[in-house]
Amino acid sequence: MWKTSLPPLLIVLILLLPQPAPGQEEMSSRYYRYRSTEMSTGVYEEYEVRPRGVQGRTDGARQQGRGLNRIADEEGRALNRIFLNDAHRGLAYYEQRRCVDCHAQEAENNRHYVRYGITCRQCHGEEPIASSNHFFSRLNSLRRHTHVCAKCHEGAGVSFALYAVHEPNPASAATLEVMPVLSYAFWIMIAVAVGTFALFLPHTVLWGLRELLTRKVGRK
């Protein structure tokens, strides 16, 4: 009886039961799980991110351990890294470092990272990370808008990709060279704000004191 009923039963089960989905697989490697999540949505499970209190905060500026230089002197001399297909080629102990160990500035002036927890690799990709000026880089301005921005901002154009993700500090003098409009707008707005409060704060405080010490305001 089994001999006749088992094959059709198996066929029925194959037809009716759902296919084993990749999502049901046990991940043996956290690395592969990370990579698949990164490539799909950019959304992380709660246990995959740091706790809320420290989320988005970088302590990369403080160096721990032996205090490696950002780039060893010889390395800096030998290569012009902004045109390499592997921008980190030959860096000492590269595998042991986190991105923010060297690129703390880039993480801090970056609302994609601070507010939305977008990681470096979600835009810059996997090893080897080409310099963004390299012809094959996904961040080359030829294809940045389609290959990087449009992953989340559907319909991003060339102009959209001109948004400075690694925003220069608008208060610093160096910004005047890089983004003059930002620098001027920032300082004009600061001047308006400071001027308003320089005038009205003492005015209001003195006014309050005057009324406090006067029985009645006015002509009588």
């Binding site: 901002h153 154009g157 959209f160 948004y163 400075a164 925003e167 920032f186 707005m189």
Partner: peptide, 29 residues
């Protein structure tokens, strides 16, 4: 941002962000 970057260059949104922030702080204070 997608529509406005067709009118202004994308870095104009960096400027707009800071103008919005400082003006908002000024207004609230």
């Amino acid at each position: 941002p997608l529509a406005s970057s067709q009118v202004i260059p994308g870095w104009g949104l960096n400027v707009a962000f800071w103008v919005h922030r400082i003006e908002a702080i000024l207004a609230m204070a």
